[in-house]
Every structure is written in C-alpha cells, then in structure tokens.
Nucleic acid binder design. Structure first.
Length: 271
DNA sequence: GCGACAG
DNA sequence: ATCTTGTCGC
C-alpha cells in the first residue's frame, strides 16, 4: 500500500502532445551567440587563444534522488568565472509528477529548475548567471529540443547542454552509438579534442568532447539556447577541472550532499 | 522479438 | 538517476 500518489506512465497520445510542445517551443530557439559577454580570439605564436573577459557568473543545475524516482533535490549553483569558485548554492526538495522517459526529460525536470532561477532573480539578481550549464542535452535530441534548450527558452537565458551518455539520433542520420564510439576512439586523442556529431543530412547535433588528457570517456556538448556550438564547447572546456564541467559537477556533488544531510533513509530503522 | 533508452 | 570497495595506474 502506497501512501504516496505515485505517478503513472504517460499515454502515447500524451507523449505525442509533448512532442508537439517541443516542436512549438523550438521556434523560439536561438542557436547563435546572443550573450551578455564577449568572446575574443587572440593569436599567440600561431596558437588561437579564446577569452571571455566579461564573463563573471556561470550557473549549473542538476537533480539528485534519494531512494525512489519521484523524490528529488533540485540544485542551482553559481560559480565565479574564471576562478570557478562556488559563490551561491540553493536547493529545493521536489516531488516529481512524471517518470523519466528518454526524449522527454524536460517535462519531468524543468519546473523545479525554473523555480530556482526565479528565486535567484528575486533574491540575488546581481549574480544571475550569464550562461547556465545543464545536466542533459540541448539540440542533441530527436527533435533538437532537450532539457537544456527547454530551460533556456522558458527562462530566456543562455544555456549549454552537457550529457555524460550519448543519446542516439536515428532518423537516417546514422548517429548511432557504434558510429560515435568508433569516431571518438579515432579522433579524440587529447584533452580539448572535439568530434562534431554530424548526421547524413549534414546537420550538426552537437559534439563529443574530450575534457582532459587523462580522461578517455567523452562528454556530449550541445547548444542549449542563445549560444553557438563553438562557444559552448569553448566555455565547457574552460570549466573542466575533471571530466564533468565544474558547474554541473558541483551541482551534482552538493545536491547529493544535501540529501545525505537532510533526509534519513528508511535504513535508519535498522539501527 | 530485438535494440535503445539524456537523467 | 542510483546501488558501491577495492584496485590498477600515473
């Protein structure tokens, strides 16, 4: 007997409706740089060096779970750039009303993230992020409108999507797991190396990026909103102390820590 | 039936 | 997403 109102699986027609919503919202998507800071490219003995001089605040968002799929802690972290020190963190305990379904992650997670952004805008507008890195894809998505894009459009803020696992795009685009694995092994030799995820149609969905020299497993970067893929990759790389860029890595670490400190799991009765 | 499946 | 110790290697 469950005393919680556990969510049920959405119907086919519900998912078709969600797909229509994604396609509709995508009309507002901006895939070029529309930023409140500038990018400068300097030449240093033939080496191109990218700098973001006016970039000061980068956000990271994530959700962590305790024992089940419905009780989560949403987190919003703000880091100072370029030091990457955490200057703000906020969490919110939420009960999710929908299950996870690949391709429809935003309908499960976007609302608590929007709420955290709204709170920040009200309480600390001075440190509102100039760009947010999201745990999940942007245009690397069957309808080119994953969580990062969804959050970006609804909040009207620049976002970058970063996935830890590849989401296959199979519409004759041939962007399959096998294809990408082979390309990654062949092309990504050192930290900073990038492989563009281009389909048969010529469309570019995102990029597989090697964060560091000493990490083989790539991350998958894609446009969220109001930023180009090139700039997205450059910013992500500047945030990588480890495989996962600091904004989302800190959001993950700190939301898990929040769970450890605030929620007593049902194991406590065993003591 | 089989493979895929962001978080 | 999450369950989890040691262990191999620089």
């Amino acid at each position: 007997m469950k005393n919680s109102n556990y969510y049920s699986n959405p119907s086919i027609s519900q998912m078709e409706e969600w797909a229509r919503v994604q396609t509709e919202l995508k009309s507002k998507l901006i895939e070029t740089d529309d930023l409140k800071f500038t990018k400068t490219i300097k030449e240093d003995n033939g080496e191109q060096i990218v700098e973001f001089d006016e970039l000061s605040y980068i956000g990271g968002v994530d959700l962590s779970f305790e024992n089940n799929e419905e009780d989560a802690i949403a987190s919003l972290i703000i880091l100072k750039y370029p030091s990457l020190e955490v200057i703000y963190e906020n969490f919110s305990a939420v009960k999710l009303s929908l299950p996870y379904i690949a391709g429809f992650l935003a309908f499960r997670e976007v609302t608590p993230l929007l709420d955290l952004l709204q709170i920040l805008k009200k309480t600390n507008p001075d440190i509102f992020p100039q760009v947010i890195i999201v745990d999940g894809n942007g245009t690397l998505h069957p309808r080119r409108f994953g969580l990062a894009s969804h959050l970006g459009v609804l909040a009207n803020v620049p976002t970058i999507g970063v996935g830890k696992n590849f989401l296959q795009i199979d519409d004759g685009e041939n962007l399959t797991m096998a294809h990408v694995k082979a390309a990654v092994k062949e092309k990504l030799k050192k930290g900073g190396d990038t492989y563009l995820l281009q389909g048969q149609s010529g469309m570019i969905w995102g990029a597989a990026v090697r964060s560091l020299d000493n990490t083989t497993n790539p991350i998958f970067v894609s446009v969220g909103h109001r930023i180009s893929l090139e700039t997205s990759i450059q910013i992500v790389l500047k945030c990588c102390r480890y495989r996962i860029p600091e904004p989302t890595r800190q959001a993950d670490i700190r939301s898990r820590e929040f769970i450890r400190n605030h929620i007593l799991s049902d194991q406590s009765i065993l003591q």
